[in-house]
Design a protein around this nucleic acid. Structure first.
Length: 195
DNA sequence: ATGTCGATTTGCT
DNA sequence: GCAAATCGACATA
């Protein structure tokens, strides 16, 4: 059975926090050099574009780095953080509206051995935004990748995450954003509830 | 041209 | 618990 990729309409929504919540339980997959690695999304954060002081697009500013966020929904925004970590985001909403969802953590399901090798670590950890990108082989060169293409996609495997299992809270590492740092834009759940 | 800081992780003290 | 790693964006000169 071919992967059931999320349609463009999934990403083309006005409420970026709704997309962030609905991404929990979906499966993020990469297919590089004939090898597939994938994991269930367990943690996300919404970034609400121009009006959000924590967003790279705050105030509507455009740079070579963040311009992909202003494009159509369903594309990958990948940037380098602290000079080292490749952070993976999903662009949402209409062109011109720079909404994005940061994928912060995964529960590995496919290609676990390859993920471990990429991490070059004894323990496979995909519990942070930088480590999950490394485990999936995602790099800044994949910035702008179409999530309905064959390199990186997100699929629906009908894994239900009940509202009661979801914890909502303020985003991580955005203390500089003033009041916006307090917004409940972070969504996560404990992967131990999974079958 | 130079300096500071960031949507972080790791290893060493 | 702290600092190194190290690049893009921005402020200051």
């Amino acid at each position: 059975m071919r992967p059931h990729k999320l349609p463009r309409t999934f990403y083309d929504r006005a409420d970026v926090t709704a997309v962030a919540r609905d991404l929990l339980g979906k499966v993020l997959a990469t297919h590089f050099n004939g090898r597939i690695t994938a994991g269930i999304i367990t943690e996300t954060e919404a970034y609400n574009g121009a009006g959000d002081r924590a967003s790279h697009a705050h105030g509507g500013k455009v740079t070579p780095r963040n311009r992909i966020m202003y494009g159509p929904p369903g594309f990958a925004y990948i940037y380098l953080c602290y000079g080292i970590h490749h952070l993976f985001n999903v662009v949402t909403n209409k062109p011109g509206v720079a909404h994005a969802v940061l994928v912060r953590a995964l529960h590995p399901v496919d290609g676990v051995e390859l993920m471990r090798r990429r991490r070059n670590s004894r323990h496979l950890s995909t519990g942070g935004p930088g480590t999950l990108a490394q485990a999936l082989g995602i790099r800044t060169s994949h910035n702008g990748c179409d999530l309905l293409g064959d390199l990186i996609w997100i699929e629906d495997r009908r894994i239900a995450v009940p509202d009661a299992a979801i914890v909502t809270g303020p985003r991580i590492g955005v203390d500089y954003a003033g009041d916006d740092a307090l917004l409940p834009y972070r969504f996560h759940f404990d992967p131990r509830i999974l079958p």
